[in-house]
Amino acid sequence: MHRNPARPLSPHLTHYRWGPHMLVSILHRLTGDGAAIVGGALLVWWLAAAAGGPEAYASFVQVATLPWLLIIWIPLSWGIIQHTLSGLRHLVMDIGAGYELRANKAMAVATLIVSLLLTALLWVYILGVI
């Protein structure tokens, strides 16, 4: 492709002031792709273990409840919740709504606050029950 160096380039990411909409946008991709790989594998393992019988299921539970695996479970649950909320934000924007600067920023910040709150509630519940 020929480019006339005298013409200005379209400004890229580093030229813009960082805002919550940019954070939520890249988090949508990271949480989605992360949850797809980790969560997808765990879903298959859980179902296959259940179908495999009590012993297969017991070994799944034994591994899944290892305390240090909370390093995976907590971020995974937050990732799924954050991706769901920012996905809803995308569906709102898909119908052409929520592009006003103030509303857009408020929606982006809301997904972050609500996802952290829901993740905290979930783990208080789970660890309280166990």
Partner: peptide
């Protein structure tokens, strides 16, 4: 990878749905 993962999950579900009480 997606086809294999989905196939394993679906076959597992069918086993549970058809012969669940036998396990």
């Amino acid at each position: 990878a997606v086809a294999i993962a989905a196939a394993i999950a679906i076959v597992a579900l069918l086993k549970l749905a058809v012969g669940g009480s036998a396990v």
